[in-house]
């Protein structure tokens, strides 16, 4: 464990908590893409199947359980408890456009051809693009609530910090995994446009509104 990985994990955890609290406190999930949340749930479930086969540490197990349970809770809040507030009309990105290519790529480019390894690789590829329905929703409505911007910033920072962690692990532990690195790079790049707007607008006290 190094500082980049720890802060990355904490950013990830913070993002999830911000989102749950936003929905719970405002009793509304408007501006939130249910499709991105379903995709993240699929990511966690397919990646953390090793909870049943492989013990790493109490920290690792606890975080995995938190990610799976909180993402299921988020999906429940959006599609059941507060479904009247869900922006169904704007959340129109097709999930199969992300899921099917991720499956195909995971079958082709992976370390080993085993069920667990292909599912793990699929989860890495799907996570890289799972935010697209959310970014698409923001671009369709042209704005995001400030709290949603904080959520996106925390979630985007997490994989960026993991990139620094992988550089660290390459130099100090001799670890290298190109699948994680390339997917993590793509994932971080997808947030760049948003990061720019976040720093230039939200941090200056303005709402995130897309330029016309």
């Amino acid at each position: 464990m190094n500082i980049f990985r720890l802060t990355g994990d904490l950013a990830h955890l913070t993002a999830i908590i911000i989102l749950l609290l936003k929905i719970w406190k405002t009793r509304s999930c408007s501006g939130i893409s249910g499709k991105s949340q379903i995709l993240f749930t699929v990511v966690y479930i397919t990646r953390y199947l090793d909870l049943f086969t492989n013990y790493i540490s109490a920290y690792n197990t606890l975080m995995k359980i938190i990610f799976v349970v909180s993402s299921l809770a988020t999906v429940f809040l959006i599609y059941f408890k507060f479904k009247a507030t869900y922006d169904r009309n704007h959340d129109t990105f097709r999930m199969e456009f992300l899921i099917i290519p991720s499956i195909i790529l995971a079958l082709l480019i992976r370390h080993e051809f085993t069920v667990m390894e292909v599912l793990w690789t699929f989860s890495i590829y799907l996570e890289a693009v799972a935010i697209l329905p959310q970014l698409f929703l923001v671009s369709k409505t042209g704005e995001a609530e400030t709290i949603t911007s904080h959520y996106l910033f925390a979630l985007g920072s997490y994989r960026g910090l993991y990139l620094l962690n992988w550089i660290w692990r390459y130099y100090f532990e001799n670890f290298l995994d190109w699948i994680s690195i390339v997917a993590g790079f793509v994932q971080t790049v997808l947030y760049c446009d948003f990061f720019y707007l976040y720093v230039t607008r939200v941090l200056h006290g303005r709402k995130l509104r897309l330029p016309a």
């Binding site: 990985r5 994990d9 990830h12 090793d50 492989n54 790493i56 540490s57 690792n60 975080m63 995995k64 990610f67 370390h111 793990w120 993991y162 962690n165 692990r169 532990e173 001799n174 670890f175 290298l176 995994d177 994680s180």
Partner: peptide, 10 residues
């Protein structure tokens, strides 16, 4: 060079 097959990350 080892690969990250330990899957010790989140």
């Amino acid at each position: 060079l080892k690969s990250l097959t330990l899957k010790d990350e989140l």
